[in-house]
Write a protein that binds this DNA or RNA. Sequence first.
DNA 1: GGCACATATTCAAATGTTCGAATATTGTTA
DNA 2: TAACAATATTCGAACATTTGAATATGTGCC
Lengths: 107, 107
Amino acid sequence: MDADFFCLHSELCKTLANEKRQMILAALRDGERSVSELSERTGIGQANLSQHLATMRAHDVVRARREGRSIRYSIANPKLIQAFDLITEVMQESMERRSRTADAPGA
Amino acid sequence: MDADFFCLHSELCKTLANEKRQMILAALRDGERSVSELSERTGIGQANLSQHLATMRAHDVVRARREGRSIRYSIANPKLIQAFDLITEVMQESMERRSRTADAPGA
DNA sequence: GGCACATATTCAAATGTTCGAATATTGTTA
DNA sequence: TAACAATATTCGAACATTTGAATATGTGCC
């Protein structure tokens, strides 16, 4: 595990670490969507959406495929969904621990 | 999944999405370490290390425990290691695909 | 070709992150 | 309690990210 490894790894993480990109990924969870569908579903404006999609394409997080007039995006690797869900679990467990600690009589 | 969810989720991701913090996590993988041990292992300076540890503490990514003069850190939730490894796999698969594509005769 | 539609790119301002130097805090031990 | 060792915090400068407005590109259809 050299410096390069951590650099690449954190680049990929950074790609996932953005509220809007997460909304986009969530919208892509159950299948391909066109940019305009994504815009409707997420409420993100056209330009910004396209920018985020470009970032994710560049890091191989999503795939683009033209179909007629529109371009349909999908999640490139199902493991990304697993990772997303794992982080969700960590988040929930940490919130549970927090509320348990706050409720504890000794605190 | 509301806006809050994505905000929290991406906050946690952001905490992981940094080269140095990843080095710290990797150094904590196989057990507790004091700050000075971490500094030696990772080559990160004291102040900066402490800043990153504070960020990770704030997001419940690591735990701190005093032992004698030093403070020993550990990873708060083993699922974080799973997530780290999943992202590693995604990264590797994406690199493999890339080199296969580059080598492909049709390209 | 020329128009309309869908998506991408460029630009610049606002905002957020990272870093080391300096300094503060806090437990431990004498 | 004073001195020390270990860690934490504050500050400001450098750098990176995010955003919408404007504009460009590409595609299908007449």
